[in-house]
Amino acid sequence: MADNTANPRQLRVKLVKSTAGRIARHRACVSGLGLRRMNHSVVVADTPENRGMINKVSYLLQVEEV
Protein backbone atom coordinates (compact mmCIF):
# COMPACT_ATOMS: atom_id res chain seq x y z
CA MET A 1 0.00 0.00 0.00
CA ALA A 2 1.37 3.41 -0.96
CA ASP A 3 2.14 5.89 1.79
CA ASN A 4 0.53 9.24 0.96
CA THR A 5 2.93 11.18 3.21
CA ALA A 6 5.75 10.64 0.69
CA ASN A 7 4.06 13.02 -1.79
CA PRO A 8 1.52 15.21 0.04
CA ARG A 9 1.34 17.86 -2.71
CA GLN A 10 -1.95 18.25 -4.48
CA LEU A 11 -3.17 20.13 -7.52
CA ARG A 12 -6.51 21.81 -8.21
CA VAL A 13 -7.46 21.17 -11.83
CA LYS A 14 -10.31 23.04 -13.55
CA LEU A 15 -11.73 22.33 -17.01
CA VAL A 16 -11.96 25.71 -18.76
CA LYS A 17 -12.49 24.58 -22.38
CA SER A 18 -14.94 22.06 -23.77
CA THR A 19 -13.93 18.54 -24.80
CA ALA A 20 -16.39 18.61 -27.71
CA GLY A 21 -14.59 17.88 -30.95
CA ARG A 22 -11.36 16.79 -29.23
CA ILE A 23 -9.63 13.50 -29.95
CA ALA A 24 -10.69 10.50 -27.89
CA ARG A 25 -7.39 10.20 -26.01
CA HIS A 26 -7.66 13.78 -24.78
CA ARG A 27 -11.26 13.25 -23.66
CA ALA A 28 -10.07 10.11 -21.83
CA CYS A 29 -7.39 12.11 -20.02
CA VAL A 30 -9.95 14.69 -18.92
CA SER A 31 -12.30 12.02 -17.57
CA GLY A 32 -9.35 10.19 -16.00
CA LEU A 33 -8.63 13.30 -13.98
CA GLY A 34 -12.24 13.21 -12.74
CA LEU A 35 -13.48 16.24 -14.65
CA ARG A 36 -17.06 15.99 -15.88
CA ARG A 37 -18.12 19.34 -17.34
CA MET A 38 -16.93 22.87 -18.03
CA ASN A 39 -15.83 24.87 -14.95
CA HIS A 40 -15.76 21.67 -12.86
CA SER A 41 -12.70 21.50 -10.62
CA VAL A 42 -11.15 18.61 -8.71
CA VAL A 43 -8.18 18.16 -6.41
CA VAL A 44 -5.78 15.42 -7.51
CA ALA A 45 -2.50 14.14 -6.11
CA ASP A 46 0.64 15.48 -7.74
CA THR A 47 1.86 12.18 -9.19
CA PRO A 48 3.74 11.52 -12.44
CA GLU A 49 0.63 9.81 -13.85
CA ASN A 50 -1.61 12.79 -13.17
CA ARG A 51 1.07 15.22 -14.38
CA GLY A 52 1.25 13.32 -17.67
CA MET A 53 -2.50 13.58 -18.20
CA ILE A 54 -2.45 17.26 -17.25
CA ASN A 55 0.42 17.98 -19.66
CA LYS A 56 -1.37 16.21 -22.51
CA VAL A 57 -4.53 18.33 -22.19
CA SER A 58 -3.03 21.47 -20.65
CA TYR A 59 -4.69 23.60 -23.34
CA LEU A 60 -8.09 22.66 -21.82
CA LEU A 61 -7.19 23.11 -18.14
CA GLN A 62 -6.33 25.61 -15.45
CA VAL A 63 -4.00 24.18 -12.79
CA GLU A 64 -2.91 25.52 -9.42
CA GLU A 65 -1.16 24.02 -6.40
CA VAL A 66 -3.22 23.56 -3.27
Rank of each mutant, 00 (worst) to 15 (best):
M1W: 14
M1Y: 15
M1H: 15
A2T: 06
A2Y: 12
A2F: 11
D3R: 03
D3S: 07
N4C: 12
N4A: 15
N4S: 13
T5A: 13
T5K: 11
A6R: 12
A6H: 07
A6D: 15
N7M: 08
N7R: 09
P8F: 04
P8N: 03
Q10H: 10
Q10K: 12
Q10V: 02
L11H: 09
R12S: 11
V13I: 07
V13P: 00
V13G: 04
V13R: 01
K14Y: 12
K14D: 13
L15I: 13
L15F: 09
V16Q: 09
V16I: 14
K17H: 13
K17N: 08
S18W: 00
T19F: 13
T19I: 12
T19V: 11
A20E: 03
A20G: 11
G21C: 05
G21S: 05
R22A: 04
R22H: 08
R22D: 04
I23S: 14
A24C: 10
A24Q: 14
R25L: 12
R25F: 12
R25M: 13
H26W: 06
R27I: 10
A28V: 09
A28I: 10
C29D: 05
C29F: 06
C29K: 05
C29Q: 03
C29G: 01
V30H: 03
V30P: 02
S31M: 07
S31R: 07
S31W: 01
G32P: 02
L33E: 10
L33G: 02
G34E: 04
L35G: 00
L35V: 00
L35R: 02
R37F: 10
R37K: 14
R37A: 12
M38P: 02
M38I: 11
M38D: 03
M38N: 05
N39Q: 08
N39E: 14
N39K: 09
N39H: 10
H40R: 09
H40D: 09
H40F: 07
S41W: 08
V42I: 12
V42T: 07
V42E: 01
V43H: 00
V43P: 02
V43R: 00
A45H: 03
A45K: 03
D46L: 05
T47L: 08
T47N: 06
P48Q: 05
E49T: 15
E49L: 15
N50Y: 03
N50H: 04
N50C: 00
R51C: 01
R51Q: 07
G52P: 00
M53V: 01
M53E: 07
I54P: 06
I54R: 08
I54T: 03
I54V: 03
I54N: 08
N55S: 15
N55T: 14
K56S: 10
V57F: 06
V57D: 03
S58N: 13
S58G: 07
S58K: 11
S58H: 11
Y59N: 13
L60D: 02
L60T: 00
L61K: 04
L61F: 02
Q62E: 14
Q62P: 00
Q62D: 13
V63S: 01
V63Y: 00
V63F: 06
V63H: 00
E64Y: 04
E64M: 12
E64A: 13
E65S: 10
E65Q: 11
V66Q: 13
V66E: 13
V66L: 09
V66R: 11
V66G: 04
